[in-house]
């Protein structure tokens, strides 16, 4: 009945055990959600992606073995809030999270913009407010949907990125407000990469993504410093760029 829960539960358990090892600077267990291409969870629970490889390499550079496990996002955040797990990758910085999360130096960034069909005329799109003249969608409950609402920009919601891409290619939706790399990754998987285009807004900055560590987790500050140190090392060694190159 709970078979689908067993793996994550075991993972949490192992994490708890290995978390203590992390305090020794040897191993650390981190959690993530499927957020291609930063985090790509494949069948048999194989996890890869830009952020996964950067974080693994950065920790490896300081002698720490990082293992990554999938878990629901809300649970990850709440576990971190209560100090039950070491951290997650990757997440953006915001005020509520500051209370219980230590953010590393950025490991990647998400560039927000409008995804359109390849033949869409994007000349009139320079600022976010320009979307008000178009039929716009965003992934439900995601930050972009909330951002549009904050700017009183009318929009519809879609359950996931794939639906959003299909909507702009096949339906009468003009714009899909979403991140660049995730959208391109999904479009590639759908075989629609040639039918879409991505346009940045001048007034919307990209969101840096960080390795997030729980403030309540034991020795999290030390771990953060070790990670930042490792990150600098792989940036200087070129390993960081090599990883990025592999996914672009």
């Amino acid at each position: 009945m709970f078979s689908y829960l067993h793996k994550p539960v075991l993972a949490v358990l192992l994490t708890m055990l290995s978390s203590f090892a992390a305090a020794d600077g040897r191993r650390v267990e981190l959690y993530t959600v499927n957020f291609p291409p930063y985090t790509i969870i494949e069948p048999q629970n194989t996890i890869r992606g830009i952020d996964v490889e950067v974080v693994t390499a950065a920790f490896a550079a300081v002698g720490i073995e990082a293992t990554i496990t999938e878990a629901p996002w809300k649970r990850i955040l709440k576990n971190m809030e209560h100090g039950r797990v070491a951290g997650t990758l990757s997440c953006a910085r915001n005020a509520p999270r500051e209370k219980f999360i230590l953010f590393s130096e950025p490991i990647s960034e998400n560039i927000w913009g409008a995804v359109t069909s390849r033949d869409f005329d994007s000349r009139s799109l320079s600022h976010l407010s320009d979307v008000q003249h178009y039929e716009v969608i965003a992934v439900a409950d995601w930050g972009q949907s909330q951002q549009l609402s904050q700017h009183n920009l009318r929009h519809s919601v879609t359950p996931d990125i794939d639906s959003g891409i299909r909507s702009v290619v096949y339906r009468n939706v003009d714009l899909f407000y979403n991140g660049k790399l995730p959208t391109l990754y999904h479009a590639q998987n759908l075989g629609l990469q040639d039918k879409i285009a991505f346009h940045r807004f001048e007034d919307i900055e990209s969101t840096p993504l960080h390795l997030c560590l729980s403030r309540l987790y034991p020795d999290s500050q030390t771990l953060l410093e070790q990670f930042n140190n490792g990150l600098n090392k792989i940036k200087h060694s070129g390993e960081f760029d090599a990883i990025y190159k592999k996914y672009n």
């Binding site: 009945m1 709970f2 829960l5 994550p8 629901p72 809300k74 649970r75 709440k78």
Partner: peptide, 11 residues
């Protein structure tokens, strides 16, 4: 079962 699932996902 469904309640446990909702709790796990904090849904």
């Amino acid at each position: 079962e469904s309640a446990a699932r909702a709790v796990y996902n904090l849904d």
